[in-house]
Each structure stands twice: as C-alpha cells, then as structure tokens.
Design a protein around this nucleic acid. Structure first.
Lengths: 332, 332
DNA sequence: ATGAAAGCGCTAACAT
DNA sequence: ATGTTAGCGCTTTCAT
C-alpha cells in the first residue's frame, strides 16, 4: 500500500528526482532539457519495475491543475444527463482529463470541498444560487446550464428555443387538422409551461379548435407515456399528428402507434422536443425541435475551459432548429 | 481567481498558520491544543472575510486522505447504478466524503490517474482484469463487485443467489400450472443463463411441460419488455403466473397486465429478480428474489472502507432471499 | 546532460 | 496558549 515516489524511482535509476520528472513528462533530448536517451530508458525501466504512478495531489498542488472535470448532474436517470456524460467521455479521451459525475449530491456543498479544473452545473435554480455561483466562481471555473442566469464570473450555457416550437406546430397543422399533444401531467395544470403553450398557440394560429381528448398526459416515466399514447390513438376519432413535449414522449408515441399497427408518418406524424441522439437513431428517425450538436459542442467547450483558465467568461447560446426527419418529413 | 491560503488568513488574523490550521480543524480549547475562544473567533472571522476554502490537494498530500469516494458504474442508465448512487449519497452525507461517479469512462485507465480513499468497481470481467486489479490495489483501496473474482489485495462484494430462484419457481408452480417467463432475448439463446435456467428447472421439478409460447423475449429496454408481456398475456390460453428474470421486466409485466385489465395477483402472479426499491414501492408491491439491504449495506461498507485503510481485505456476501409481496403473496 | 534546491498549501510534532 | 518548523510528492528555475 506504500506507493513508490519519484524519489524511489530516482534512487533506483541512479539519477536525481529532477531527471525523473523530466523524463516522465516526456521532456527528453528534443524539448525542454536534453536528457540522454540512455538515462531516459533507465528511468522508464525503473519506473516500470517499481510500478510507479504519479501522485495527482502533489502534481495538482504544484501546477494548480487537477486534470479533473466535474459534472454535476441532478437527474442521473434523465437521458439528457446520459447524453452529457457520453459526449464528455468521448471529448475528454485524448485530453488526459478525468470526468467525474457528481450525482444528486448537492454541488452546493460538494464544490466547496472538492475542486476541479472545470465544473459543469446542470441546474442552479434555487433561491440564492446566483450569488453562490459568483462566490464559488472566485476559486473554480464554473460552467452553468441555465435559461435565466447571466454570466457573472462563470460561463453560461443557454439553449434558445425562440420560435422553433411554433415552426414545428405550423409544420404539423399545415397538413393535419387532428393534432394531439403528449405532455407530462404537471405541465397541463400550469398552462404557463412553454412547450404546452406552443401547442395551444399553434392550434390557435391554424384556426383549429382545442379538443381535450387530444391531450394525453403522462406521469414522467416512459411506460406511462406509452400507455397515454396508446389510449390517445385507440379512441374512435384518433389524431393524425402528435406534438410531444419531449423526445422521450415522442419515442413512446411512435412505439405506441407501431404497436397498434399504425404507420409513422403515414397514419400518424410525430414531432418531439430535444433533438436527442436516441430519437435520431430510431426507425423511423424522429423529427424534433432542439439545439444541434448540443452535447458534442458542450463537451468540447468544457474540455477547452479545462485547459485554459483566464479567458473571459462567456455566454454560449444554442439556438434551436426544427429537424424534419422521417416521423414527420418535409413535404416535397 | 487567486485563492486565499491559510497563510493569508493567518496574516489577516495576526496569528500563525498553525493556529489557523488548528482552529479550522475545530481543535480549540477542548481537544488537541488549547486555542482561546478569542483567537478562534478572530480566525473564523478572517477566514470568512477572505472567503477561505481549504485546498484539498494540499490536504491530501499531507494527510494521505482525499475524502473522495469513486464509483465506477459501467451502465449509468441501469436502475442498479442509480440505486448505488442514491444509497451512497445518503450514507456519505455525514461522513464528509464526496462521492464521484466514473461513468463508462474506463476505470482501467482513470484509476491510474486519479486516486480516492476508496474505489468501487461494478464490473471487472474483462480479460486480465484480475491481475490489473491486484496491481491497482497496491496503491488504491478497491472494492469490486463480482460473482467470480476472489479477494486479492482488494475487497469483493458478491451476491449469492444459491437456491433462492428455485424457491421462487416452486412458489409459483405450487399454485399455478401455467407459468410463463419474461427474459431478455439473448439469455434464451444460451440456455446456460442461470436465471432462465432456474425457470426451466422449476418447470421440470413441478412436472410441467415447457411451452415455447410461454416464453416472452425482450430486447433490453423497458418498452420492449412491456410489449412482450402484452403479447404473452393476449394469447388465447394465457399464463396465470410470470417468472421475470429481472425486476425491470417484472414491473413491465405488471403494468402490461394492468393495461389489459387483468388483476395482479388474482389473474396473474408475478415474481421478479433483483429486489429493487422500485419494485418494492409499486402497487401492487413486487415479489422478488434478491439480496436484502444490498444498496444500503454496500454504501455503509464503502464509507467504512474510506475511513480506515489497513483492515484486512474481505469478501462480503449478500445471500439472496425470496421476498413475497403483493404481486405473488404467500398462501395463508 | 544532469543535479540542487525552492516552494506549492497544508498538518502535526515539538518548542516556547 | 500559540508559534516554529519539517516535511508530503512533485515541478522547475538555476547552477554546474
């Protein structure tokens, strides 16, 4: 359990600790200092023989870099979180950075204890969070995902829905008069919810009367969305188009239609929100509204931020687009 | 971005760094050294004013403790992973330990870079993992979840299914002759799969003939399991009991039955495998086979291991039990 | 081409 | 009751 240090390696190789450090950092003959090939090989041999691993804490204290990226993901079970994790994993690979996820564990307390080169926070909508973030940003490089916060010592990632949801509704109402909505139950209660509001507004614009039987509410889980969609499509006068307030729900709706031997998009057209990879990959591929390249661009941004502190804090906007794929194709 | 150090605080408070260290560690009058209340207050004030946060890296290098727990969770989307994360989050709260999740990111490379007081690995079944673990264990405290590995410098967590699955089958066949199985498609191909094997053996023991139309295969996702169960229950001569090879599948089967207006357990009895919280919480509560208290006990063990290095490495077994709940109750 | 040595921020004997 | 000081393992400037 006693790890060999750079000193042990130095002794074993018969050189100084400085030499070991240079060699292990790859600064031989060419770059930095000119350590001879001979000693370099000797050092490597010694390090291998001893099973030497550099002590990250020591390195961090010396260089100020931890090579750590912290991702605070509030809802680990959300596909969104999984997409972030996946994208970051891919982006980070070549950068020598280790991404670590902070689950529901409150970042509000954890960040004070544990630092990282860059910290991504996916939700900061509690009372006082704005001030807290500014304070934490004094000693951490923060990247915050928020629709409302302004950059203030930290970076802000923002997705800009704009009028894209309206476009999606218009696309459906252009060729369909029986347009239904699949949405989580709680968003129906407060009609303020933007996504459900976009559905209602879309109907109004097209001069279509609202039908309560064309609204399917579900309870948050995939299964419930599926069952809600089945009920929706099994009624006597079923809708021919579905506007789902998440890709999640849209995917369930497509499955439900297929389960009922309805063709998508011929019998039912479906549009989701989120533009997730999952939706893009299914058959038929899901038409959706959302930012493009969100996850990869976010991941790249994080890696970039991890490498250079000091650049001015930015606001990174992800404008939404309407992606017309097979489940509700463009009319040709 | 320039953090105040213990030195800055010492200067501000007009004391030595040692005093600051003591005060901030809570070692005043009573324990350790007797720092007067007066100076203690002064130090705290200074620390607050400056917004001082201890540097974890420095502390780690000095004490050898990182206050970090690393959880390598291979399938982040798996409810199992979520349960681990949840339980650990709860257990860790009072211990001053920060739990960090290493997602699909290979622990095989990450652990070499980043240390922690204790590292939990949920899957180590690749070629050469056994040796790698032993090597990594020289400088890390590892806890590995595995059915096959033997403790070798690291702890092993093992769940012992034993004959419990057989009990579950016997429970079903005691009162039912039409017992179906819901299992992932791939486990059907290799009849070696233990869980599916338990189903077949159970039938044999009860002298019930195997019926291929009583086997529903699904493709891994929840929706697919649901659809498979619907098909199973909609056939002319439906089963009256279902043995599902995971709680996941069992939950889907219960939902499917309910969707078809079948009563559980009156029309269909269901037993799952895993004994997950999710199953325990549903209505009707799910009968299941699995270890009891697995997640909380695992979490407690991890916290314990994080605090004291040095204890001998252990093999922690979680014997399985049959939990008879509402979905397939005990006969009274 | 290599080594000596300072020092990152912190803790814990050991002095005073 | 508080201060002095020696490191923890590492990087890096400056000598040699």
């Amino acid at each position: 359990m006693i790890r060999p240090t750079i000193k042990t390696v130095a002794a074993e190789a018969g050189v100084s600790t400085a030499t070991v450090s240079y060699v292990l950092a790859g600064r031989t003959k060419g770059q930095g200092s000119g350590i001879s090939e001979a000693t370099a090989t000797r050092v490597h041999a010694a390090a291998n023989a001893l099973g030497y691993r550099p002590n990250q804490a020591a390195r961090t204290i010396r260089t100020g870099k931890s090579n750590l990226m912290m991702l605070s993901l509030t809802m680990l079970s959300d596909p969104w979180s999984l997409s972030v994790s996946k994208a970051v994993g891919a982006a980070v690979a070549s950068a020598g950075i280790t991404p670590m996820i902070l689950a529901d564990t409150d970042w509000r307390t954890a960040i004070k204890r544990q630092g990282a080169d860059v910290i991504f926070i996916d939700a900061a909508d509690r009372e006082g969070d704005a001030e807290l973030l500014t304070e934490l940003a004094r000693s951490n490089h923060l990247v915050v995902f928020s629709e409302t916060l302004e950059p203030n010592g930290f970076d802000v990632i923002r997705s800009v829905a704009g009028t894209t949801m309206a476009q999606a509704m218009d696309h459906l109402t252009a060729t369909h008069s029986k347009v239904a909505c699949v949405a989580p139950g709680n968003s129906l209660r407060s009609s303020t919810t933007i996504r459900y509001g976009a559905y209602l507004d879309g109907l109004k614009r097209a001069g279509i009367d609202f039908r309560p039987d064309y609204v399917a509410a579900f309870e948050g889980d995939e299964l419930s969305a599926y069952q809600a969609a089945v009920a929706l499509l099994q009624q006597p006068d079923p809708p021919t188009a579905i506007f789902a307030t998440s890709d999640y729900a849209a995917i369930a709706a497509v499955h439900a239609a297929q389960g009922l031997r309805l063709a998508v998009p011929e019998d039912v057209a479906v549009i989701g929100i989120g533009n997730t990879l999952q939706g893009e990959m299914m058959a038929p591929s899901l038409s959706s509204v959302g930012p493009s390249d969100f996850f990869t661009r976010l991941a790249d941004f994080l890696v970039d931020r991890a490498n250079d502190h000091g650049k001015p804090h930015r606001e990174l906007e992800f404008p939404w687009r309407l992606f017309l794929r097979d489940s509700a194709p463009a009319v040709s």
